[in-house]
Design a protein around this nucleic acid. Structure first.
Lengths: 132, 132
DNA sequence: GTGCCTGCAAATGTTTTGCAAACCT
DNA sequence: AGGTTTGCAAAACATTTGCAGGCAC
């Protein structure tokens, strides 16, 4: 197991995610951190975000066709993605009728719901078997 | 409305998607077309795939963190994405127990199910209002 | 003939990687 | 000292765009 160190940069990244109301992208985290610490590098922010996800200190929120987002909340909840700007937010739904729904918490106008299963395809199952 | 023309390249692209059992990515479509027509350009394939989606001749299948895929089937159905290689397939589920499920049709090992809402965030709603 | 479509090359946006120097413990 | 982490630059990957010439209608 890797020896995970607690560095200044890692704490800066973690604090930015923790201080966010919404789910910032890596670029947004970088922009906030770099304001006060102009010497930090973008790759350090990316690396630390993923380290923090591995350590389960934050959660990765993936959307369709957009950059990765990061979430300070670890507990399971649903997300909504803006089809225009790819922003991601938490969702708390109040159903109005079948086709359109207003999300109270965020002001999003909900258009649709994607259900996507995640798994391992036959080829990759083979590959994994061979590695073991 | 744009005058959509029927070109050789567009037909090649459409036929490749129609001939696919699974959901090829743009790159995969390009690789198949370019075998027989070495002068076709990657951007033409991308452009025509999107044109065909706009014309509803094929369907766009988006996955998390992977390239776009294209689907000859227009009817609604669910998809599964491989977490290792990002391949996308149709899903027909046979529930075994709560956490793991075998998908008969495709041989995927299902690991999880993502529910993602799609909508328009407050900022983009504003922007759209101003354009109208 | 008009103007959409193509092919090329370059740009874009997001993320990853190689590497030497800096840092922690 | 030893190994991890950083910053930089470059690469990687998927996709889009500008443009001049070609082709469909």
């Amino acid at each position: 197991m890797k020896d995970k160190r607690q560095t200044i940069q890692k704490n800066l990244v973690l604090n930015v995610v923790r201080a966010s109301d919404n789910h910032p992208s890596a670029e947004e985290v970088y922009q906030i951190v770099v304001k006060d610490h102009p010497s930090i590098s973008r790759s350090t922010v990316y690396r630390n975000l993923h380290n923090l996800v591995d350590e389960k200190q934050i959660r990765l929120v993936q959307v369709l066709n957009g950059p990765e987002h990061f979430d300070k909340t670890l507990a399971m909840h649903y997300h909504i993605q803006c089809t225009e700007c790819n922003r991601a937010s938490d969702i708390v739904v109040r159903t109005a009728n079948d086709s359109e729904t207003i999300v109270e918490s965020s002001g999003y106008l909900v258009k649709s719901k994607e259900i996507l299963y995640l798994g391992i395809c036959p080829d990759c199952q083979e590959k994994i078997k061979k590695l073991e």
